[in-house]
Amino acid sequence: MRDIRHMPMLCLAFGLTCPAPLLAAGGGGGGYVSDAPIPWHMTVDDEGRNVIELIPNAVTRLGLEMAEVSEWMPPEPPAEELVVSSVEELQPVAASEDPTEIVKVPVQPQLTVPYGSLIYWADGTTWVYGENEIERHYVRLPVRVDRIEDQTVYLKSGPPVGTVIVSVGAAELFGAETGTGH
């Protein structure tokens, strides 16, 4: 397979017309329109958390997409019948209790977020970026992951249901916060 990165230079060298996609692919720029840094500003909120503020064009340029923390209700497990082999097994049941009663444990809802929102810190902790009460202001929020299935992350704990979080572009905000972006 030919490396098309050098095609624009060959076109110029031989005076040929070069298609625009080849010119865009030409310096190996990764498809970015500009190598200029994303304009952002970082402050610290009252709780001591870093707050990343982006200008409106940066939100578009980064392709940020938002979602909300959701709640998933697991299906209720089927009631299991009490099976005993003898009357003696029922002796521990108090006389006032109905030995045929089936006790159901309530099913608890679970928080969920899109997989694309999840960020792993160097120490192994997991986070999402939430919109910090003001549009285009983002703050890193801790989450505890229970499990990941397909593109859904099921949480043991995290921000409340309805919290607006970044579902696409969280890695770019992580880069801005930690200084690893360009």
Rank of each mutant, 00 (worst) to 15 (best):
D150R: 14
Y120R: 08
G130F: 01
V128R: 10
V128D: 07
D123S: 06
D150L: 07
D146Q: 14
I148E: 08
R144Y: 08
Y120T: 15
E135N: 12
T126C: 12
T152L: 07
D123Y: 01
T152F: 03
Y120K: 15
G130I: 02
T126R: 12
G130Q: 07
I134G: 05
R144F: 00
W121A: 11
E149A: 15
W127P: 03
E131A: 05
P142Q: 01
V145Q: 01
I134Q: 12
T152H: 04
E131L: 09
G124F: 01
V139G: 03
I148S: 04
N132C: 13
E149N: 11
W127V: 01
D150Y: 09
I148R: 12
P142M: 05
E133L: 06
H137R: 13
E131M: 13
Y129Q: 04
T152D: 08
L141K: 06
W121E: 14
T126A: 13
D146K: 13
E135I: 12
D123C: 01
W121I: 00
T152Y: 01
W127R: 08
W127I: 06
I134P: 00
D146L: 13
G124R: 00
R140Y: 04
L141A: 04
T152E: 03
V145T: 05
T126M: 10
G130S: 01
L141H: 07
E131S: 07
R140Q: 10
Y129C: 03
P142F: 06
R147E: 04
E149W: 03
P142K: 02
G124K: 03
R136W: 08
V143Y: 09
Y138P: 00
R136H: 06
G124Q: 02
H137F: 00
R147M: 14
R147D: 06
V128K: 07
A122P: 00
G130L: 03
T125C: 08
Y120N: 13
R136M: 12
L141M: 08
T125Y: 02
Y129N: 09
R144P: 00
P142G: 08
A122R: 09
W121N: 14
